[in-house]
Every structure is written in C-alpha cells, then in structure tokens.
C-alpha cells in the first residue's frame, strides 16, 4: 500500500510538482474556464497548489481513499483500486454519468467539459510510473522534500515522528489517517486542512458504508416484494371467490 506524505510546513510553493504532473501526463496549457472550481484543479490540472494566508501552500490532488466513494458508486467499474492503492480510471468503460463527481467527498474528479467526447480526469497516482518502480512525478520533482512517496505505514510513522519531534510546529493530526476511512495521500500541517474536503469530517466511517445496507437489501427486497404481492393476489382472489359464492347463495 503506497502513499504520499505532504508536509505543508516544508512547501515553498514552487509549483514544480504541478509542472511535473502536467509534463508527465502530457496535459495541455490551461486557462480559466467557466466550469472550473477555484481550487486550481481541472481536466488539465490533476494536481494543484492552494495558496492560504501567511505563506502556506497546500497541495491538492486525489486522496486515493482506502475505501473510495467514487469506486463504490461507479456503475461500470471504470474506477478501480489497484493493489498499490492507486485509484485509476478506465476511459473505455466510462459512460460519463459523473456520479463519481457527485460522490467524491473531496471534490476531486474533473470533467472534459469542452470535449464532444469527454472523460473523467484526475490524479492516477502515476500508476504507470509506480508499476515500473519509479516514484510519482510530483514527489520526484519536489526540490524541498515537502511531498514524499513511500509505504503508507512507514509514512504514517514518519508523520507521527515529525509531529512528536516538533509538537509546537504541527497540529496533532495526520490528515488522511482516519479521514473518510483513511486516505493514501497524507498531510501534516500547521494549519487546519478542512478546506480540502466538503464540510470536514474526521474519524468518520467511509462513505461506501452509507449505501452498503441499502444495496445489500436489494435482493431480499426483490424476493420479498414478489412474495408480498403473491400473497396479496392470493388473498384478493380468495376474497373475490368468497364474495362471489355469497352472491350466488343470496
């Protein structure tokens, strides 16, 4: 299980990761379009830097949740989790329903709105690089070691080590450790990173669990409704037959 750890206090906002991401995925130049959200992510920007007050730069990219909402809602399994923990997208399966965009609690997936043949666009954890044993383009490009790549448990302990070493510098949370059931992209920071997700929720169960109960009730409901209707039919038929008999007698 791979992960990325970003130390917000170390980021100098040089945009090297953003540039590297664009170069390695052959993404074209981007200009503001009417369908963009103001966080820098777009169909041409899979990773961005959000500038916060007092020289704070926060990387924004797909969080690669351990229990991803997007994967659970995709009706055709176009989004899947690989064994490295990356959530990757198969454009050949996608039907363009954009349910993943509705479901994502971090608002990550973006759409090719200007294209007549549009696809979902988001960070793929540099899947083709990591399978070749390389690290993602963004972590490789970082000149300051602010964003690093590694095994998730190792990076988690590294994050806790840094927090323990300088408790005054960091907030006492590893963002992404438990959030939304845990994410592969982790942050340690001196400012609150709630703005990265829709109304911040921590230590909450993962989103797929919200639909799990209803979805598992589907087959019993199908059979149950059939049985109920069958019973009702039998009852009504019997009632009519009795009523008919009464009518005959009277």
């Amino acid at each position: 299980m791979k992960a990325i750890l970003t130390d917000v206090t170390k980021c100098i906002g040089c945009f090297e990761c953003v540039t590297a991401c664009k170069t390695s995925h052959n993404l074209s130049n981007d200009v503001p379009r009417k369908w963009h959200r103001n966080d820098g992510l777009s169909a041409q920007n899979w990773s961005s830097i959000v500038q916060r007050p007092d020289n704070h730069y926060v990387r924004k990219q797909c969080r690669h949740c351990l229990e991803p909402a997007c994967v659970s809602v995709c009706p055709v399994a176009a989004l899947i989790t690989t064994n490295t923990g990356a959530i990757i997208y198969d454009p050949d399966k996608c039907i363009g329903c954009r349910y993943c965009m509705i479901a994502c609690p971090f608002g990550i997936p973006r759409y090719d709105w200007e294209e007549p043949v549009p696809y979902i666009r988001k960070c793929d954890f540099c899947h083709d690089r990591t399978t070749r044993g390389l690290q993602p383009a963004c972590t490789e490009a970082c000149p300051n070691g602010a964003t690093i790549f590694g095994e998730r448990d190792e990076l988690l302990s590294e994050a806790h080590r840094r927090i323990a070493a300088e408790p005054d510098k960091y907030l006492d949370t590893v963002f992404g450790e438990h959030e939304m059931g845990g994410t592969a992209v982790l942050y340690i920071s001196d400012i609150d990173l709630g703005f990265l997700s829709y109304p911040a929720r921590r230590e909450t169960p993962a989103l797929p669990e919200t639909t799990h109960l209803a979805m598992s009730a589907v087959p019993p409901t199908f059979i149950g409704m059939g049985a109920l209707m069958g019973g009702l039919y039998w009852f009504c038929k019997r009632r009519d037959a009795l009523a008919g008999k009464d009518k005959d007698k009277s």
Binding site: V73, V76, A77, K93, Y99, P208
Partner: peptide
Amino acid sequence: HPIIYWQHHSAL
C-alpha cells in the same frame, strides 16, 4: 455498458 461491466455496489 452496465450490461457487460458489472459493479453491484453501485446504486446507479
């Protein structure tokens, strides 16, 4: 596509 690509966790 839902006919051939199954994903039974999805309500859609």
